[in-house]
Amino acid sequence: MRKSIILAMALLSGVALASEQHGLVVNTPPEGSVTREAGLQAWERIHAVVSHPRCANCHTDERNLPMWSGSEYADAQPHGMNVHAGESRIGSETLACQACHVTSKRPNTVPHAAPHAGMDWRLAPVEFVWFGVDGPAICAQIRDPERNGGRDGAGLVEHITHDAEEKGFITWGFNPGAGREPAPGGMQAHLEDMIRWVAADMPCPED
């Protein structure tokens, strides 16, 4: 919360602010210093990340099925083994995601093993659906506090730094290990793009 307040103050005050958080450098630009065009360019890079299979495979709709898709698969398909995450989105109704995807901050080193992260493995909340959704719709969802977990711009930035602290799913997406294709860019670049997009007042392509 404190970090959110500091970030919000920086965004409002027009003063650049830099800090180091969990291995990430948070450079907040002065208010009004990022153009809409630069914001849209940042959004395109954010979209390339969130639509990448490392991210989108677990941002699926109300059918509650994690997906297997991406360069490692010939065709997109639901997660094997008849896995169904249920309305709980963590599989607790039948087989918990954590049965195989354990919670561990250690690196993923074993090819073909169930990947793990420092957060309890799960599908994202159902309103955060990205798989099979076009870019403008994802953009509208991410900036809508009703559908993004109640986050304002500062909250979206803090979401990334918090993930770095926990070695959560964003961190894993950029460093999935064990032969998996990572999401494009990197954690620092993604953070900087999110800061730029937020500073440009979160523009979407169809605004």
Binding site: Q98, A99, C100, V102, K105, H116
Partner: peptide, 19 residues
């Protein structure tokens, strides 16, 4: 290799003992 950890099924081959 399924065992229970606090009653929940877990594949023990995936659980680092330190975690």
């Amino acid at each position: 290799c399924t065992v229970h950890i606090d009653g929940v099924a877990v594949r023990s081959c995936q659980m680092p003992i330190g975690d």
